[in-house]
Each structure stands twice: as structure tokens, then as C-alpha cells.
């Protein structure tokens, strides 16, 4: 039962944990401000605390309901639904790969530069997601990158990071 509750609560409490951490950090940085400046955050924080508590209580009630439903299913001779204790976050191999590549992109952007990094990113992710038509992949990577470069750098005059190319030109 305890392990089931832990599994169930991982997903249920995830956002509540984030909210608690955020509140602690927020008030750590804001508590020295004058009361007049804190009126609004205090009201919102009270609402957040009440809602966190309500969510925690609600998830315990929901957990009990799920346990009861599982017991009923077992008693009726049915195979209990396993999905209710599934605590995975739905990150398949392909999703994880795209996730990681997208996380890395902004980190590498100032070093490698927009043009080369975007071509590599588009080619790499589409390859990872299963495309094997190399001619189309190369064309797609270059065209999308060129299009974004034309819109942002040329049309709108926003300077995109040049990275490696900056030292070449």
C-alpha cells in the first residue's frame, strides 16, 4: 500500500512540490520589502498555500478511491488496471532524445552560432525521429534555417548569435 501511495503521489504531488519550492525561494528574496509592496504577493501566497493543502488532501481521497476500485476489480475477477499506478512521465526514447537536443540547443547557440547549429539540430532531430531521406533532410534543414535567418536577421534586423562564424568573418 505504501509503495503504491508513493508511486501515485509522485505524479500527483509534482506540481505541488514545485509550488512549495518556488514559494520558499520567493519569500526568501522578498521578505525584506516593505509591507505595502508585499500586499499582493501575500494574498496570492495565501491562496497558493490553501490550494496546495487542498490538493494534497484531495489526492489522498483520490488514492483511497483508486485502491477501493482496484479491490472491487480484483473481487469481480477482473484484471486490475495497472495504469493508475503508472508514475512514468511518458518520456519514450524518441521524446527523450528530442527533449535533450532542444535543451542543448540554447546552451550551444552562443558557441556554435545560429546557422551551423540550426542545420545540425534540424537534421539531427528529424533523423532521430525516423526520417531517412537524406536529400530531403538536408534540403529541409537548410531551407528552414535560411528562412528563419531571412525573417529575423535580414527582415527584422535582429542579430542572431554567430558563434564560430564570428571569428571567421
Amino acid at each position: 500500500m505504501f509503495i503504491k501511495f508513493i508511486k501515485y503521489s509522485i505524479k500527483e504531488y509534482l506540481f505541488a512540490y514545485f509550488s512549495i519550492v518556488f514559494m520558499v525561494l520567493y519569500w526568501n528574496s522578498a521578505h525584506t520589502l516593505p509591507y505595502e509592496a508585499l500586499r499582493y504577493p501575500i494574498i496570492i501566497s495565501v491562496i497558493v498555500v490553501v490550494l496546495i493543502a487542498a490538493n494534497l488532501v484531495d489526492s489522498v481521497i483520490k488514492f483511497r478511491r483508486e485502491v477501493a476500485a482496484e479491490q472491487q476489480e480484483t473481487a469481480a475477477g477482473e484484471v486490475p488496471e495497472k495504469a493508475r499506478w503508472d508514475c512514468s512521465l511518458g518520456l519514450t526514447k524518441k521524446r527523450m532524445g528530442t527533449f535533450s537536443a532542444t535543451l542543448l540547443y540554447p546552451v550551444l547557440l552562443p558557441l556554435v552560432g545560429f546557422l551551423p547549429l540550426s542545420v545540425v539540430y534540424l537534421f539531427g532531430v528529424s533523423f532521430f525521429l525516423g526520417i531517412r531521406n537524406y536529400k530531403v533532410m538536408v534540403l529541409y534543414s537548410i531551407v528552414v534555417t535560411a528562412l528563419l535567418f531571412a525573417i529575423f536577421e535580414i527582415w527584422l534586423g535582429i542579430s542572431l548569435p554567430q558563434g564560430l562564424l564570428e571569428s571567421l568573418f
Binding site: A101, L122, V125, L129, I131, T145
Partner: peptide
């Protein structure tokens, strides 16, 4: 195709 769409939208 999503394999083209996803990286382009992210970018």
C-alpha cells in the same frame, strides 16, 4: 510529417 514539424516548431 511530425518528424519535420517538431524540430522546426521548436526552433
Amino acid at each position: 510529417d511530425l518528424s519535420y514539424m517538431v524540430p522546426a516548431v521548436m526552433l
